[in-house]
Simulated scan of single mutants.
Amino acid sequence: MMTNLFTVFDPSSSILFLPMNWLSTFIGLFLIPNLFWTMPSRWSLLWNKINITLYKEFNTLLKSNMKSFPFMFISLFSIIVFNNFLGLIPYIFTSTSHLIMTLTLSLPMWISFMIYGWINNTQYMFAHLVPQGTPTILMPFMVLIETISNMIRPGTLAIRLTANMMAGHLLLNLLGNNGPNLTNFFLIFLIFSQILLLTLEATVAIIQSYVFSILSMLYVAEI
């Protein structure tokens, strides 16, 4: 049982003593009608157009031998934007506002491509640690800085997505909890501000999904 909207951030909330909050990640799969996959509609055509646009955008940033990679990042974008929008519905657990979810998306991918890069492009990976034109005396420091910046990449991806999704939700909750104590005039102003914040959150949900996928792809393209 949920006592308030802040409970949606609690991963230990349960139904019949079973921690089922994480199942919200797959709720939408049960809501999509079967005809969506077999019969063209405005929504399916719109989603296909978005995927085609993303493919063209991602394809321009990759090398000629990496033409199949955009499909993986389009899928990543779809998963994140889907969960971001689900989190805008009251009392639905927002999985992308937790590091355990965002790190699950960024860390395995980063580790796998780093292993691939060091095994197959060892010389290039070593050369990448020292930018061209670096003075000899600064080379040890540059190696240290580049190594640290490379290692924190999955963390920055995860924290960026988590912080942006949680900040908007908390602001909406804090404003909404003050509604019963306000007069009619301020209540109308509160509702109007909530609508604007929801619009902003919907925009942030799309932007953060795109940023997460495009940065992941750029990190992979470097390898």
Rank of each mutant, 00 (worst) to 15 (best):
M1H: 15
N4W: 01
V8N: 11
F9E: 10
S14H: 01
F17V: 11
I27E: 09
G28K: 04
L29C: 06
F36D: 00
F36H: 02
T38P: 08
R42Y: 00
S44V: 00
L46Y: 00
T53I: 00
Y55F: 00
K67Y: 01
F69W: 04
F71Q: 11
F73K: 04
F73R: 06
N83A: 14
N84F: 02
L86E: 14
Y91F: 12
T94G: 14
T96D: 13
T96Y: 03
I100Q: 13
T102M: 05
T102A: 05
M109N: 14
I111W: 06
F113P: 05
Y116M: 11
T122L: 14
Y124K: 06
F126N: 02
A127N: 13
H128I: 01
G133L: 07
T134V: 08
T134Y: 00
T134N: 02
T136V: 10
E146N: 09
E146T: 07
E146F: 00
N150H: 03
R153Q: 08
P154C: 02
P154E: 06
T156G: 05
L161C: 03
M166V: 03
A167P: 10
H169R: 12
L171I: 12
L171A: 09
L171Q: 12
P180G: 06
N184H: 08
N184E: 15
L190V: 11
F192M: 07
Q194M: 15
Q194Y: 11
L196Y: 06
L197R: 13
T199Y: 11
T203V: 13
V204E: 15
I206P: 09
Q208I: 06
L215C: 10
S216Q: 10
S216I: 08
M217R: 07
